[in-house]
């Protein structure tokens, strides 16, 4: 019920924030903990400030799509659980959860982050499908960055389960040492515009006060793989250029945390 919209907006125009942070400053702690669910092929817990999300990768063998018979597939799903915020309700994913999963999905898919051909076991018959589930534990804003970081981290630490090509049976109890064929490591960063100021890592209160936001997923080389603009205020080309610079800089910053935990 508390939003402090007006104060957040007034402060932003003076390059200030409610919690005293700089506009380009992330909250602390930023932590990435791996292997939090041994039933998943890869799993992580990501915390940024008081925002906590879990992500888990499950692998299964499916029939490839008709138009890509020699490739596996990927699916990303996000659940904004009613456990994580008084604002979320039970039931099928709302539009916010759908946008979150779509933006993270496109960042990974369009970067061609996973070598889909290597996921194929028998062309037209069998291929590995990768499903990432992002589950919120406590939403205090910036789920795009936290969710994107969690998805990438979960992909990086996932291991294939034991598969018997003779019988076609997957033994999920046994994990092999083989990782997913990752080609790129896209990471989304979202920049928010509040009262003409650009800022990153908003709290849930700041998220209620924004005019526009832009999510930019980029890989280690700074190549952009997905963009999503949100909010009802337009952005100028000059602003978008500034946002891209900031997003690329912050992607590098968050990546350092990831590289420390998962080699």
């Amino acid at each position: 019920m508390i939003e402090n919209k007006q104060t957040i907006s007034e402060l932003a125009s003076k390059n200030k924030r409610l919690d005293g942070r700089g506009l380009e400053e992330y909250r602390q702690p930023i932590t990435i903990e791996t292997d939090i669910s041994r039933t998943a092929e890869g799993s992580v817990r990501v915390q940024i400030g008081q925002t906590v999300v879990l992500a888990g990768v499950k692998l299964s063998i499916e029939k490839p799509y008709n138009d890509t018979p020699d490739q596996g597939g990927i699916m990303i799903n996000a659940e904004l659980t009613p456990m994580s915020s008084p604002e979320y309700e039970r039931g099928p994913p709302g539009i916010k959860a759908i946008e979150l999963s779509r933006v993270i999905d496109r960042g990974i898919r369009e970067a061609k982050a996973i070598d889909m051909k290597k996921l194929c076991l028998e062309p037209g018959e069998k291929a590995w499908f990768v499903i990432i589930d992002i589950i919120t534990i406590n939403d205090d804003g910036n789920l795009f960055d936290a969710g994107g970081l969690a998805a990438l981290a979960a992909l990086k630490c996932a291991k294939f389960p034991e598969y018997d090509p003779e019988t076609g049976v997957v033994d999920y109890k046994i994990k092999t040492k083989e990782s997913l064929p990752l080609l790129k490591e896209p990471l989304p960063i979202t920049v928010y515009k509040i009262n003409n100021a650009l800022l990153v890592d908003p709290t849930s209160q700041e998220e209620k006060a924004y005019d526009a936001r832009l999510t930019i997923a980029s890989d280690t080389n700074g190549t952009i793989s997905a963009i999503q603009k949100g909010g009802n205020t337009p952005l100028s080309i000059a602003e978008i250029s500034n946002i891209a610079d900031l997003a690329l800089k912050k992607a590098k910053f968050l990546r350092e945390y990831l590289d420390k935990v998962i080699k």
Partner: peptide
């Protein structure tokens, strides 16, 4: 009460989310 197993929490294949 509301009870939910996370999709990756089962010992076998992924569990479909939802109630």
């Amino acid at each position: 009460c509301s009870y939910s197993m996370m999709p990756f929490s089962g010992s076998g294949e992924r569990i479909r989310p939802g109630h």
